[in-house]
Design a protein around this nucleic acid. Sequence first.
RNA 1: GUGCCUGUAGCUCAGCUGGAUAGAGCGUUGGACUCCGGAUCCAAAGGUCGGAGGUUCGAAUCCUCUCAGGCACGCCA
Length: 548
Amino acid sequence: MRTAGRTSLAPEEGKIIIEHTNINPNKAAHIGHLRNACLGDTLARCLRYKGEKVEVQNYIDDTGVQVVDVVFGFMELEKKTVEDLERLPGKFDYFCWDLYARVSAYLPKHPEAQARKSEIMKRIEHGLDPEYGLSRYVSRRIVKAHLATMARLGVFYDVLPCESTILHLKFWDKAFELLKERQAIYLAAKGENSGCWVMRLEEDEEREKVIVRSDGTVTYVGKDIAYQLWKFGLLGRDFFYEPFAERDGRTLWISTPTPTAGFPAFGGATKVYNVIDTRQSYLQKVVVQGLRSLKFEAQAAKSVHFSYEMVALSPKSLSELGYAASDEEKDRAFLEVSGRKGLGVKADDLLDRLEAKALAEIEKRDPDRAGDERRKTARDIATGALRYFMLKFARNSVIVFDFEEALSFEGETGPYLQYTVVRLASIFRKLKERFGLAESDIVPPAGGAALIPEGLSDQETADFWDLILTAASLEEEVLRSVAALEFSHLAKFAFLLCQKFNGYYHKYPILAEENLEVRAFRLLVLRTAKEQLHAALGLMGIPPPERM
RNA sequence: GUGCCUGUAGCUCAGCUGGAUAGAGCGUUGGACUCCGGAUCCAAAGGUCGGAGGUUCGAAUCCUCUCAGGCACGCCA
């Protein structure tokens, strides 16, 4: 019964690139970033399960204005050097979170500072110290902080392409040539965009999107088109890479403009998923249209914007954060997270709270366990709670974040799924202790004997089919989730399977069953359910604890 | 102004490639085996599916209009 349907899992692409996380390296990660990473990572896991070759990229905008703002803050407001930053106590990403908010408030009140900010930006672009050195120090250290936060959730990447490398290797120049050559853009001679290179928009013939400004610099979308071309191997230019971090013997690579050797092949995908929130839908459309205008129809069709709604803050969570809402903000149902305002729930803070709560529960229930083991389990529960929370909502619905809801361990939550897994593990552990039977000994009856014992009640037969058919639909659910990019389906499926198992388990004794034939049958049902459930949790990145 | 998204139980959300009495969690109320983990299970109460029209044998689901909320639309990123 476990082999049925295997054929449905087959790769359809040569190579798939998923770009997700993409946090500006100038401040701590927040709950909005967590939703992005959880969705992207789950997509990666599901596609790999399907048999696809997947490359996960986390794009680092290390030369953008957000980093410049923080560099400005360190130089002008804090008067700090790189050496000072090395000695800064506490979490560096948290310090930058506050500093970025300070700078964002400072700049509008000090228009004269704009000149200095522009100067910093130019000097970073040209690699001039101390600005350049500071920007590199800040962005690299923040990236490490982000990677550490994501590692807490089991989210990892293959490669970190950097904006700075794209600039140094002049990816844009190459893309610009292509765009001009194939007449995908043209120089506007009159009108408000006079002097700019623009792209005509398909949907709205009247509108044109500026790709190159009248001063000759490229816009955000322009750079994105170049990057998208590279992902498909269409740019005719490539990065170099060097190791950035290690985990489990695997190397995470980061792009570099300096020629290196010995790195794996990155890029050159046949399909690309960009995990970006829905507010960027318009820009993503322009990027795809850019490919189409270049006559890369096939690649345009395989460029997927995996869009999702934002995570916002409930009025209750706002007051818990100590945020004083303005009169205008007061009657709103929710408020957007804002890095500029320093308004948001930091990812590590939320994870810390989840871990602390889980640890308290474990200590209450199982005070004899070793401290290390308790902490490990608390981490697993925190991860499970958070990842399930980020997946259970349909991607088109705004998550109005509420602490009480996010910190819940009961009902439709990750810990409920984990608890179910723990109960299953416990049954098989006791089976071994009491009867010396290993899980692998639980196999269908040999010699063509009936699977369902004779004389099984109609009710139990019906419950058996209900549970087993649900368990068997995992693959179908995964494929459906991937096709719709709707991982709430997968989450609901896992939850339903747990509910069905818990109901079955409540009604039918397993270890205490004296009829050995019936016991063997029920164990077989449980083994199947357990395997499918573990697979489902694995795809969602929810760790299955042995005990909790 | 134009485009996209959302509106379903007190609250948070599923269901939306049309199909039978509209589901779940939380909350409320009442229960559960001396036995395999009570982070569990069972039950009850709770809904004119924002509103109006239309298509259909049949609409929460499709179409039109409308009301309410959100987001986007820059020579910012």
